[in-house]
Every structure is written in C-alpha cells, then in structure tokens.
C-alpha cells in the first residue's frame, strides 16, 4: 500500500475553492469544537461538518479504513476514560453519578454521565475529522506551498512542507522495495513474538537501509536546490492563489463558528449534557 496524498476530491466543489479556505476552515474548527460540550450542539455541528465533508467528493472506498480507525481509537480512549473516572470528569466532575452497572473485579462503575461523555467525544472528533479530511484530499498537489506562503509562513517553511509531501510517495515506494529485497533473503517483516526490544532490533533491516538511503540521496536534493539558488534572497511565487466569493464564505462561516463557540464557552452555555434516556 503506497502512501501518498491522493487528490481524490479533484473537481469537487470544495477542491475548486482556494486551498487557504480549506486550511483556515480546519484550523478555526479545531479551535472552536473543543469549546462546545453539549452533545446536542455537537450533533448539530457534526451534521454540518459532514455536509461540508461531502462537498469534497471523497470516494468512500478510499477512506473507509481511516474512518474505521478513527472511530475505534476515539471510542476506545473515551470508553477507558469513562471507566477510569466513572463519569466524574468534565462538567460532571463533582456530580452525583447515576451508576448503571458495576463491573467486576474492581467494581468499575459504568455511569450515565460516563456514557454521555463518550457520546460527546465521538461526536466532536467525528466532526473534527470530517472537516480535516478535505485538507488531505481536496487540495491540489503543488498548491499547498503557495497556500502556506500566502497565509504568511514566509519563503522557507512552505517549501519544507511541500518537499515533505513530495517525498512521501517516493520514500513509500522505496520502503516497499526494501521490504521486498529483505524478504528475498528470508526475512519476515511480520514476524511477531519476543520482547518489544527484540522486535525493534529485528526491524533494523527495514528502517536502516531506508533511512540511510534517503540521507545519502538527500545530498543530491541539497545540490539540486543550491544549484537553482534556493534560499539566497527574496523568492517569487509563480503560482498565486485567488480567493473567490465562495471561498470567502467558507472562511467566514468557520470564523463565525469559532466566535460563537468561544462565546458559548465563556458564557457557560454549552455544558456537558446528561443524556436523559439513560436516567429513568
């Protein structure tokens, strides 16, 4: 499986927007969403986030696995948190909890508050992920650098980020080649067993050649950049992005969301909500 930022959203409504608006949207959203605690608010936000996500036209098949992992990991962390605290965290920190059942052997409490908190987290992270996906799939390759530049990150950092994205598929292919080359010599990359230390050492035939190879190759990259006068003075950026009205609307909408979320947080109007059907 080759790693690369596939431009899967090509041609979709969101992909036709200025990439800066996609980046800013995700950024504002990540700042705003943690300030919302009420799961009813979050349910609404998730619905809007999914609508936004659908505008990127990302084929479901290509990202199924990512979504699955996301839900499993968030669910697991949230559940463990609920079990450890018995639901006494967040807005319920000092609450009298409604214990639904007690698990042996330690008497771990499953409470209505705990479950409510799980729901909150799953809703929130689901929404954050939905708004984040277009960053990976709806920004044209090559536009990321100019977008970061025009967001004010200077001349060098955008080139560094662009270079990172550019190397990912190359290194991923090389990694695959290395795995192949070692398998031919009787090496089994999936062998398990042994302590973590033994297992790490056993992986040396994979990570050593890939790392060292990419570092020796880096000399060529450095030469190629030096020879084309990188970093010697002020840089022109040939690609210039234009914000159209729709892009401005996207940015504006997410900015408004951030302001509203901050307001709700400061005024205490979005506190954790106890799902009523759990407590009879």
């Amino acid at each position: 499986m080759r790693a690369a930022f596939a431009y899967l959203g090509r041609g979709s409504w969101l992909a036709r927007r200025d990439p800066r608006s996609i980046l800013l949207a995700a950024f504002f959203f990540v700042l705003g969403a943690p300030q919302i605690r009420d799961s009813r608010h979050l349910a609404l936000i998730l619905a809007v986030a999914v609508g936004y996500y659908l505008l990127a036209g990302i084929p479901w098949r290509a990202v199924r696995r990512q979504w699955l992992l996301l839900v499993v990991v968030i669910g697991a962390v949230a559940t463990i948190n609920a079990l450890i605290t018995g639901g006494r965290s967040g807005g319920f920190a000092d609450a009298e909890t409604h214990v639904l059942l007690t698990l042996p052997p330690f008497g771990t409490e499953v409470s209505a508050e705990g479950i409510s908190l799980i729901a909150t987290q799953v809703l929130r992270f689901g929404a954050i992920a939905a708004v984040g996906f277009p960053v990976a799939y709806a920004i044209a390759p090559g536009d990321l650098g100019p977008a970061l530049r025009q967001l004010g990150l200077g001349d060098r950092m955008p080139v560094m980020v662009d270079l990172t994205v550019r190397f990912i598929p190359t290194l991923s292919t090389e990694f695959g080649e290395t795995i192949d080359a070692q398998r031919v010599r009787g090496f089994d990359p999936l062998r398990t067993g042994g302590s973590p230390m033994t297992r790490l050492r056993r992986l040396a035939p994979l990570f050593v050649p890939v790392t060292v190879g990419s570092l020796t190759g880096a000399e060529d990259t450095i030469d190629a950049m030096d020879l084309r006068a990188f970093g010697v003075g002020k840089r022109t950026w040939y690609r210039r992005l234009q914000m159209d009205t729709a892009s401005r609307v996207v940015v504006g909408a997410f900015a408004v969301f951030l302001v509203v979320a901050t307001f709700l947080n400061v005024t205490g109007q979005s506190e954790h909500y106890l799902l009523p059907f759990l407590v009879r």
Binding site: A3, V165, I168
Partner: peptide, 16 residues
Amino acid sequence: TRVIVYSAIGAALYAV
C-alpha cells in the same frame, strides 16, 4: 537548505 531538506526527509520518513 540542508536543514530544510533533512527536515523534509525526516518528516516524510516519519509519516511513511
């Protein structure tokens, strides 16, 4: 340039 290229390669490898 050297720092930028090594960082980019490091970051790409880390991600891969």
